[in-house]
Design a protein around this nucleic acid. Structure first.
Lengths: 247, 247
DNA sequence: CATTATTTGTACGTATGTATA
DNA sequence: ATATACATACGTACAAATAAT
C-alpha cells in the first residue's frame, strides 16, 4: 500500500499561510526534490488527513493546488500520484507573486542586508557612482529571493539615505524621484546555490536557483537600475506576457 | 446593494454535470453575454446559496472556477465582481531561440526524440487532440536544451507528418500553416536535472537547469502551442525585452 | 460475473477568522 | 464599534469509479 513517506508537517514553515498552502508547499517540495518521483503514489486523502489531524477537505484543497500546477494527478477510485512530464505544465495556472501578495495584503517582508556606494562599471563609458543595496525578500516568513540593485546617484540623488524595505524600489523611483521607467532587459538562467546564497535562502548548497539579471532604462536609454536576483523556484516563478510587435 | 439579478437556475437541467459546474456555466454565460458587465457586483455567496437552495460551499466552488478563468474577482469583506479585461502584465518582445539562431547563422542542430498524438487537457474545456513532439537542441554539437511542444491538430492540420528539425517551429507555423502568433505567456524557474534530463543534456544529475513553461496564443486567444523547455544555463540564457505600456 | 473494499468526487452543513465598509 | 462578506477549516454523508475478491 505504498506505505512509508508519511508527511510529518510539524516543521511546516510560514506560520501565517493557510494550512492547505503549507501542506501543498511541503508536498511540492518533496516532488521537486525528487523524494517522491514520477508515479509515486500518495497515501489516500483520508489517511493523510488522519495523520495530520486535519479535515479531508483541507487535504483535498492542498492536492487541488498541485493538480493545477501539474505536480500531481488524481484518478477516482485509484489514488493520487506524482505526475510525469507527459502532461505539460500550463502557465497562468501558477499563482503569481503579485496575486499572492495582493490577495493577502502584505505577508511579505524585505530585509536590507547592506548598502554601499560604488563606482559601477558601464558597458560603454566611464564608471558611474551608484548606490548598491542588497536585500532579502521573504514570503510568509520564508526566504524567497536575494536582490542586488545598483542605482546611479545622479538619477536619484539622496537615495543612498532612503529606506528601501517598506516600498517597492520602482514605486519609490517613480513616485519620489520622478524617474520614468521605460523598458528593461531581462536575462534569466539557473544556477546552483553557493554557500552564501544557500545560507540566505535557507536551501542546501547546490540547490537550483533562478538567476535573473535585469537592466532598466528610462527615456533616452538612460540607465536607471542594474539588478541581479536569485530566486528560490519553489517559492516563486516569475511570469511575463509577451506580445508580437509589428516587427 | 446591486440587488436584482438573482440566478434562477430552474432551467439548468444540465443532466449529469456537477452542480457547481452548471452554476458556473450559467454565471459565465451571463458575463460573456454582457448581461452582467464589468464591475457588476454579484449577490453574496450566502444569498445565492439560499436562493438556489444549495450549500454555500457549492457556490464557492462555482465562483472559484470563474475566478480562475478570469471572469470574476473576489475581495474579502467586499464582494464578488465581474472582472474587467485589463491585464496587469508587462508587454514585451520575445524572439524564440530557434528564430534567433536562424537569424545569426549559429551552428545548431535539432534532434527529434519522439512524437505522438495525445488528447491534451485544457485549462478550461474539453481536451484537444494535439501533436506532442520532444526535441533536443544542440549548439556546436553540445546539448543545449530539451523541448516538448504540444500543438493542436486543428490549428495546423497535417503537422504530425511534418519534419520539425530543420525549421523553427514558430517559423513553420507562420510560414507554412499561416498561423498568426499574437502573444505568449512565459513562466520561468530553475529545477534540478533528473536522471532523464541529465542524460539528454549531458550534465550531472542534480545540475541546475533553466525551466521554461510557455503558452502561445493567436488572434482571439486561440491556443497555438504549449511548450515546456529545459535549458543548460551554461549554454544559453534567454533574454526578453519589456516595455512599459502606454504613457 | 457479481460482490466488496477502497479511493476519489460531490454536496451538505457548521463554526470561526479576517478584511472591509 | 458594528455589520457584512469572503476565507479557512472542520465534519458528515453518499455517489461514482476502480481494483481486488
Amino acid at each position: 500500500m505504498t506505505d512509508s513517506s508519511s508527511l510529518a508537517l510539524e516543521h511546516l514553515p510560514g506560520g501565517s499561510a493557510p494550512l492547505y498552502e503549507r501542506i501543498a508547499d511541503e508536498v511540492r517540495r518533496r516532488v521537486d526534490a525528487g523524494i517522491w518521483s514520477r508515479g509515486h503514489r500518495l497515501r489516500s486523502e483520508a489517511e493523510i488527513a488522519a495523520d495530520l489531524q486535519v479535515a479531508r477537505g483541507t487535504i483535498r484543497r492542498a492536492i487541488a493546488l498541485l493538480v493545477e500546477s501539474g505536480h500531481l494527478v488524481q484518478r477516482q477510485g485509484v489514488g493520487t500520484f506524482v505526475a510525469g512530464r507527459e502532461g505539460l505544465r500550463v502557465p497562468g495556472r501558477f499563482e503569481s507573486l503579485g496575486q499572492r501578495m495582493e490577495r493577502n495584503g502584505v505577508d511579505h517582508e524585505t530585509v536590507e542586508l547592506g548598502r554601499d556606494v560604488v563606482d559601477a562599471p558601464q558597458p560603454s563609458g566611464a564608471p558611474v557612482r551608484s548606490l548598491r543595496v542588497r536585500r532579502l525578500r521573504l514570503l510568509d516568513g520564508v526566504p524567497m529571493s536575494v536582490l542586488v540593485n545598483q542605482i546611479p546617484l545622479d538619477i536619484a540623488p539622496g537615495i543612498e539615505q532612503v529606506d528601501l524595505v517598506t516600498m517597492s524600489l520602482y514605486t519609490l523611483l517613480e513616485k519620489s524621484f520622478h524617474v520614468a521607467i521605460e523598458h528593461s532587459e531581462l536575462t534569466f538562467g539557473a544556477i546552483a546555490a553557493d554557500a552564501e546564497l544557500a545560507a540566505l535562502l535557507d536551501v542546501p548548497v547546490g540547490a537550483p536557483l533562478t538567476h535573473l539579471v535585469q537592466s532598466t532604462y528610462g527615456p533616452g536609454d538612460v540607465r536607471i537600475d542594474d539588478a541581479e536576483t536569485w530566486i528560490r523556484p519553489d517559492r516563486h516563478q516569475p511570469t511575463v506576457s509577451l506580445w508580437r510587435t509589428n516587427s
